[in-house]
Amino acid sequence: MNELIRLEGITKKFGEHLIIPTLDLTINDGEFVTLLGPSGCGKTTLLRMIAGLETPTTGRVILDGKDITKLPPYKRNVNMVFQNYALFPHMTVTENIHFGLKMQKVPEDEAKERINQVLYLTQLEQFRDRYPSQMSGGQQQRVAIARALVNSPKVLLLDEPLGALDYQLRKKLQLELKNLQRGLGLTFVFVTHDQEEALTMSDRIVIMHDGVIQQDGDPNGIYHHPKNTFVARFIGESNFFDIGSDTYALRPEKLNLCPEDEENADHPEPKFFGTVVDIVFYGTIDKVFIRLDNTNQTVIAYQYFDDVHRWQADDRVGIWWYDRDGVKVEKE
């Protein structure tokens, strides 16, 4: 894979606050990379540094081999889809999309051609003469994407573009964006705080916390092999067990329950015991909340609607898992 973007030795200070303490990141051509993390972790700042809307305090931004750190946004061949779309209210959809081409002095015929292509791609043909205020959130979203894509940027940057949309629409657009990226073979850098979204869409997830990259890998790897408690907690649900001086993270679906006094079981010995305190209905599963003896920790296991044995509150249980499912993690 070719390296497309390289962030080298990046730090960022806002006044006295050190937002990002030395960060390095490489993004390859054709990747769908998601910067994932809670609010304030620095992911948007990083994205804006690639766009040129923020400058790093120290470090370099390198695009396709060229150092663009000092270049203003209008000299960089990257385009951004803004969180609230930022569609120009006094221009129609066509004029909005045309804007970038106009600024680059693209000839009229070529511009027309490209606009038509991108309108087709984003299914906006019937809206070409509408104003943003006359369109729904989802439609405005697509205009924002079209407006960026028409310029054939080397990288498309997306700043939590689906945040303002309702659940169904968001799911639909996630799929559309993924297909768009694959179909066009573009590089997308996507920022979100929604871990489900990241898992669904990305080739690669970069999890950030307090300006530091916690883990960088493919969705599968991150989900099944979190490196530390932060990642384990942020992605999906996790239970943590201390055995000796080590901490193990286990997803609820990997936890198994057996009666406390079970004998001659053909599965590994329970490592912990506890009492069921609550069972909560969640659609396909029930979440079983268990308070552990000795530590007063509460852990979560799942039970399924077709399980033979259904647990109830106040049941005494033993908790066991296969060694291969336990992931040793660092305390963050």
Partner: peptide, 14 residues
């Protein structure tokens, strides 16, 4: 809104 001007800059406007 400030993001209009940012968007314009991102879209190659001096």
């Amino acid at each position: 809104r400030s993001d209009y001007e940012q968007a314009a800059s991102d879209l190659y406007a001096t």
